[in-house]
Design a protein around this nucleic acid. Structure first.
Length: 914
RNA sequence: GGGCUCAUAGCUCAGUUGGUUAGAGCGUUGCGUUGACAUCGCAAAGGUCAGAGGUUCAAGUCCUCUUGGGCCCACCA
C-alpha cells in the first residue's frame, strides 16, 4: 500500500475522481431515517443565469462544511439544491441573446419567447450546478429543484390563491417603482436608493390673476412639472397664507392649478412651496388623494414623455428635462439652479434610475404575515448569527410595506387571475367560495370589495363561475421571482402535494440553518420566515448565518464592471478547490466582510501541500505490520507510553473538541485556524520531528498514523478532496469513504491538560537552546553540548524520559543534568520555564552581550511580576475574582519569582566572571 | 434623519461570555542541517490595541464622547 507519492500535491489528480466516487455511491443522498436526527440546509438557489463567483464560493463552502460536519456527526444531513428562474435577470439575458439575431421579444410573441428561455435554460442553465460540483458541494443532486418546475409552480399558484382568499392579496392603482428599461414594476427592495449628484431647480409658476407675480417651487425632476395638478404650501406658513386657494398657470402647459395647504409641506425646505405631481411621486400621490386632485400621467412605460406632455411628447425623460429647463429659462421662469445631492431608486437588475409611476398592480398585504415572523425572532425561534442582524430584521419587519408582486415581464409564474369580460361589464363579482372568507368579510365589512370579473383560480377555468361566459383572459403579468423563492424551504419538498411531500417534509422541515449574505435578508430570509409561519405553521429554520460580502483588497464589491473580480474557477485551476475553500474560510471572521486578493489562496495551497507531504512521510515510513491496523486516535491514546505520544494524542483531542465547539457556534475561521496550527506546528514541526529518529518504534508507528487519520476526519468538511484521497491511501478503517467515517468523539479522558502544560515547557527548553545556538552562530551541523538544571522533580523526570527528543530537536551531542549550584565552565546561560540551561561554548563571545540579553529579559519579567504582585496585594481582587483566576496568579508569581531568581543568579555569576 | 459596522505588527486580519508578558498569514532580518515538504525548517525583529473619559479587583474586550473609513434603511420636494 505504501506507494511512492509525488512530492507535491496535485489537486487535479484527485478532485474530479473523488467527486465522481461520492456521487456514484450516493453519499450525498439523504432519506428520512427513523432514529436519526435530520440536519437540513436548503441552498440559496443561484440564478439560472448564474456563474460561480466568490460570493457563491464562500456561501456554499460554509454550507458544505456544515453539511459534511453534521453528516459525520451522525445526522441525516440533507443539503437541498436548486436553481432560481430569476425572472427579470433571465429575461434580460435571453433578450440580449435574441438581439444578436436582430429580434425583440415582441417580435417572437410571448409563447415563442418563453420557449426560447427554456431552450436557453436547457443549454446554459446547469452551468452553475457544474460549478458547484467543482467546489465540492455535497448536495443531494437527485433532489435538484427549479422554481419554474411544474410541481413548484403549483405551490406558487396555491399560495397566491390562499392569500387572495384570505384577502391578503389585492389589486390596486398605486405609485410603484417602475424601471423604464426593464419596463416592469419593482418592489421597494428591488429599487435600492443610491445617492446622486443632481440639481435643485427653482421654477416660477405665475398667478392667474396677475401673471407678473409667481410662486417659486423647487424640484429635482423638472420634467414632472408637466403633470402638476397643484402647488402645496404649509397652512402655517405666513408667506403663502394669502395665496392658498388661488389659481396658478402651469407654465408650458397652461393648465390652471390651485394652491393648496397641507401640513406635510416643510416650510424650511426649498422655497416652502411644493409642486404636486400625483401621478409621479408617492408623497404627491397621497396629497392628490387627500385633496381630490387630478392624476395626470405624463410618461410612457419606457420613460419617454406621453401625449399629456404637450410639445415634449416622445422625448426621453432626461432629454425632456433639459429642453423644459431651456424653455423655462427662455421665458424667465427658471429662477435658479442649485447643486443638490439626492437619492433615487435604481433598478437592481439594470441600474437604471427608476421612475415612481402610477399603475395598477397586485400587492400582498404584509402586516398580518409579519406578525408571527416578528414573534419567531423575538422568542428566539429564529436566531441570527451574528446576533445584530436580528435588529435589522425586526426593524424592517416592523415597518413593513405592502409588497408589489406583479411584474410586466414574460418569464415567470403567470398570475393565476382570469378576467371575465362580461362580468366586468355588468359589475358582478366572483362568488366567495370559502367559509373562512365569508367570516372575514362579515367581521370586517370595510375590507376591500371583490372586483367585478376577477377570478382567482388554481387551474385555468373553462368558464366564468358567475356568468358562465367563456370569454376569459388571464392576467398578462407574472409574479415577482421572490414570490416563488419565499416558499423554497417547503415547496422543494413538493408542498402542497401532500402525498408526495408528506414523509420528506415531515422529516426534514423545518431546516436547521440558512446561510446567506446580508443583502438577502429582506428579499428572501424575512419572507421565507413569513411564508413558513403562514403555510407550515413553523419558521423554516432555526438559525440564520449571515456571512460577509466578498470584496476586493480595497474593500470594493467585486463586480464585472469594476473589473476587480477574482474568479473562483481560476483559483481552483491554479491552486485547487481545497485551497480555495480553506483560504476563504480562514479569512472569514463571523460577520465581517472578506477582503480578498489572489495571494490569499497560497496559504490554502501550501497547507494542502504540507498535509500531503506529512502523509507522504508517514506512508513512506510505515511498516507493513503497522499498515492496515485499525487504529484510531480514540483508541491509540490509551495504549501508548511515551510522553511525546501521550502529548500529541492529548493535543489531538483538545483540538478536535475545540474545533467542534467552534463549528457548533459558526466560528468557521477559528475552526480552520485551530486545525491549521495543530497540524502544521504541533503535529509536523514538533511531533514528527520528535519521532523521526525512532520512527520504526511500534508505538510511534501507531500514533503518527492514528493522529493523521483522525486529523483528516476533522479537516474533511473544510478540505474534502485531499482528506479523502489520503484517507483512502491510509485505509485504516472499515468505511468506504471518509465521508462515512465519524467525526472524532469528544473524549475528555484522552485530554491531559497537565501533561500538555509540562510538555510545553520541554518544548520551550528546546527553543531556548536553539535560540542560544542561533545567537552564538553555532552551525547547524555542529553538535552542541548543554547542561540543564531542572527546577523541580517533575521537570527532571520529564527531561530524563524525553532526553533523546531534546538531543535531536536541539541538535545536541549530549545534555548533562546538573544539581543545584553547578555552573559549567565556558558556557552561555539562559533560563527556560522550569529549567536552567547552559550551552557549552568555548569560542569567543561577549559576556557583556550575554548580560545585556539577560537583563533585558529580566526587566520584562520584573514588570510582569510586579503587576501580579500588585494584583495579589489588592484585597478586592482576591475577594472578587474567581478562585481559579487567583490561583493562576499565585502560581504565576511562584513561577516567575523562581525564574527571576535563577536568571539573577546567572547574571551575578557573569558579573563576577567579568 | 435613523441604525449597523470597522480602526490591533510594515500589509491583510484573528482575538468566544472582561482574567498570564495581545496572536496568525504575508512581508522583513539571520541561519539552513541524515532527502516528507524551499508551496519547507529554525531563530529573530516588529504593537502605549485610533484619541479622551468612565464602569470594574481587572478593559483590546463593556459604557459615553471625539476623529476617520465602510454599509444599510428612510416619502427632504
Amino acid at each position: 500500500m505504501t506507494k511512492e507519492l509525488p512530492s507535491r500535491y496535485d489537486p487535479k489528480e484527485t478532485e474530479d475522481k473523488w467527486y465522481a466516487y461520492w456521487e456514484e455511491h450516493k453519499y450525498f443522498c439523504a432519506r428520512p431515517a427513523p432514529g436519526k436526527k435530520p440536519f437540513t440546509v436548503v441552498i440559496p438557489p443561484p440564478n439560472v443565469t448564474g456563474i460561480l463567483h466568490m460570493g457563491h464560493a464562500l456561501n456554499n463552502t460554509i454550507q458544505d462544511i456544515l453539511i459534511r460536519y453534521h453528516r459525520m456527526r451522525g445526522f441525516e444531513s440533507l443539503w437541498m439544491p436548486g436553481v432560481d428562474h430569476a425572472g427579470i435577470a433571465t429575461q434580460n439575458v435571453v433578450e440580449k441573446s435574441i438581439a444578436k439575431e436582430g429580434l425583440k421579444r415582441q417580435d417572437l410573441g410571448r409563447e415563442k419567447f418563453i420557449q426560447r428561455v427554456w431552450q436557453w435554460k436547457e443549454q446554459y442553465g446547469s452551468t452553475i450546478i457544474r460549478q458547484l460540483k467543482k467546489l465540492g458541494a455535497s448536495c443531494d443532486w437527485e433532489r435538484l429543484r427549479f422554481t419554474m418546475d411544474e410541481d413548484y409552480s403549483r405551490a406558487v399558484v396555491e399560495v397566491f390563491a390562499r392569500l387572495y382568499e384570505k384577502k391578503l392579496i389585492y389589486r390596486g392603482h398605486y405609485i410603484i417603482n417602475w424601471c423604464p428599461r426593464c419596463q416592469t414594476a419593482l418592489s421597494d427592495e428591488e429599487a435600492p436608493h443610491r445617492e446622486l449628484q443632481g440639481s435643485l431647480y427653482y421654477l416660477r409658476y405665475p398667478l392667474e390673476e396677475n401673471p407678473a407675480e409667481y410662486v417659486v417651487v423647487a424640484t429635482t425632476r423638472p420634467e414632472t412639472m408637466l403633470g402638476d395638478t397643484a402647488v402645496a404650501v404649509n397652512p402655517k406658513d405666513k408667506r403663502f397664507k394669502k395665496l392658498v386657494g388661488k389659481a396658478l398657470i402651469l407654465p408650458l402647459i397652461g393648465r390652471r392649478i390651485k394652491v393648496i395647504a397641507d401640513s406635510m409641506v416643510d416650510p424650511k425646505f426649498g422655497t416652502g412651496a411644493v409642486k404636486v405631481t400625483p401621478a409621479h411621486d408617492p408623497n404627491d400621490y397621497a396629497t392628490g388623494k387627500k385633496h381630490g386632485l387630478e392624476f395626470i400621467n405624463v410618461m410612457h412605460p419606457d420613460g419617454r414623455m406621453n401625449e399629456n406632455a404637450g410639445d415634449y411628447r416622445d422625448m426621453d425623460r432626461f432629454e425632456a428635462r433639459q429642453v423644459i429647463l431651456e424653455d423655462l429659462s427662455e421665458k424667465g421662469l427658471l429662477e435658479k439652479t442649485e447643486p443638490h445631492t439626492l437619492s433615487a431608486g435604481h433598478c437592481y437588475r439594470c441600474h437604471t434610475i427608476i421612475e415612481p409611476y402610477l399603475s395598477r398592480q397586485w400587492f400582498v398585504k404584509m402586516k398580518p404575515l409579519a406578525k408571527p415572523a416578528i414573534d419567531a425572532a423575538k422568542k428566539g425561534k429564529v436566531k441570527f448569527y451574528p446576533r445584530r442582524w436580528t435588529k435589522v430584521y425586526l426593524n424592517w419587519m416592523e415597518n413593513i410595506q405592502d409588497w408589489c408582486i406583479s411584474r410586466q415581464i414574460w418569464w415567470g409564474h403567470r398570475i393565476p387571475v382570469y378576467y371575465c369580460a362580461k362580468c366586468a361589464e355588468t359589475g358582478k363579482s366572483q362568488i366567495p367560495n370559502s367559509k373562512f372568507q365569508k367570516k372575514k368579510q362579515n367581521s370586517n365589512p370595510k375590507s376591500q370589495t371583490e372586483e367585478a370579473g376577477v377570478i382567482v383560480s388554481r387551474v385555468r377555468p373553462e368558464k366564468c363561475p358567475v356568468c358562465g361566459s367563456t370569454d376569459l383572459a388571464q392576467d398578462e403579468d407574472v409574479l415577482d421571482t421572490w414570490f416563488s423563492s419565499w416558499l423554497w424551504p417547503f415547496a422543494t419538498f413538493y408542498w402542497p402535494d401532500e402525498k408526495r411531500a408528506h414523509a420528506d417534509l415531515e422529516y426534514f422541515y423545518p431546516t436547521a440553518a440558512l446561510v446567506t449574505a446580508p443583502e438577502i435578508i429582506f428579499f428572501w430570509v424575512a419572507r421565507m420566515i413569513m411564508a413558513g409561519e403562514e403555510f407550515m405553521g413553523k419558521a423554516p429554520f432555526s438559525d440564520v448565518y449571515i456571512h460577509g460580502t466578498v470584496r476586493d483588497i480595497e474593500g470594493k464589491k467585486m463586480s464585472k464592471s469594476l473589473g476587480n473580480i477574482i474568479d473562483p474557477l481560476e483559483i481552483i485551476a491554479e491552486y485547487g478547490t481545497d485551497a480555495l475553500r480553506f483560504s476563504l474560510i480562514s479569512i472569514t471572521a463571523q460577520g465581517q466582510d472578506v477582503y480578498l486578493s489572489k495571494e490569499r489562496f497560497e496559504q490554502g495551497r501550501n497547507f494542502a501541500n504540507k498535509i500531503w507531504n506529512a502523509a507522504r512521510f508517514i506512508l513512506m515510513n510505515l511498516d507493513e505490520q503497522a499498515a492496515g491496523q485499525n487504529i484510531a486516535p480514540e483508541e491509540g491514546g490509551k495504549k501508548t507510553a511515551s510522553a511525546a505520544n501521550r502529548w500529541i494524542i492529548s493535543r489531538f483531542h483538545s483540538t478536535a473538541g475545540e474545533v467542534a465547539r467552534q463549528l457548533d457556534t459558526y466560528r468557521f475561521n477559528e475552526a480552520a485556524n485551530t486545525l491549521y496550527v495543530f497540524f502544521w506546528h504541533e503535529f509536523c514541526d514538533w511531533y514528527l520531528e520528535m519521532i523521526k529518529q525512532d520512527i520504526k518504534n511500534p508505538d510511534n508507528q501507531e500514533v503518527m498514523m492514528a493522529v493523521l487519520e483522525g486529523f483528516l476526519r476533522c479537516l474533511h468538511p473544510f478540505m474534502p478532496f485531499i482528506t479523502e484521497d489520503l484517507w483512502q491511501r491510509l485505509k485504516l478503517r472499515g468505511d468506504t469513504s471518509i465521508m462515512r467515517a465519524a467525526w472524532p468523539p469528544a473524549d475528555k479522558a484522552t485530554v491531559d491538560k497537565k501533561l500538555e502544560k509540562q510538555f510545553a515547557s520541554l518544548l520551550a527548553l528546546v527553543t531556548h537552546i536553539r535560540n542560544l545556538r542561533a545567537w552564538l552562530e553555532i552551525k547547524p551541523e555542529q553538535q552542541a553540548v548543554v547542561s540543564v538544571y531542572p527546577h523541580s522533580k517533575a521537570h527532571a523526570a520529564l527531561l530524563s524520559e524525553s532526553k533523546a527528543l531534546v538531543l535531536s530537536l536541539a541538535r545536541l551531542e549530549s545534555a548533562h543534568i546538573l544539581s543545584e549550584n553547578q555552573r559549567p565552565e565556558a558556557s552561555v546561560s539562559s533560563v527556560a520555564e522550569g529549567f536552567d540551561v547552559y550551552l557549552h561554548f568555548s569560542g569567543l563571545f561577549d559576556a557583556a552581550k550575554e548580560q545585556a540579553k539577560i537583563k533585558d529579559r529580566l526587566s520584562g519579567m520584573h514588570k510582569s511580576l510586579e503587576a501580579k504582585k500588585a494584583r495579589m496585594a489588592n484585597k478586592e481582587f482576591v475577594k472578587k475574582a474567581p478562585a481559579e483566576v487567583v490561583e493562576k496568579e499565585k502560581a504565576g508569581i511562584e513561577e516567575l519569582t523562581n525564574s527571576i531568581t535563577r536568571l539573577e543568579k546567572m547574571f551575578n555569576e557573569l558579573q563576577r566572571g567579568a
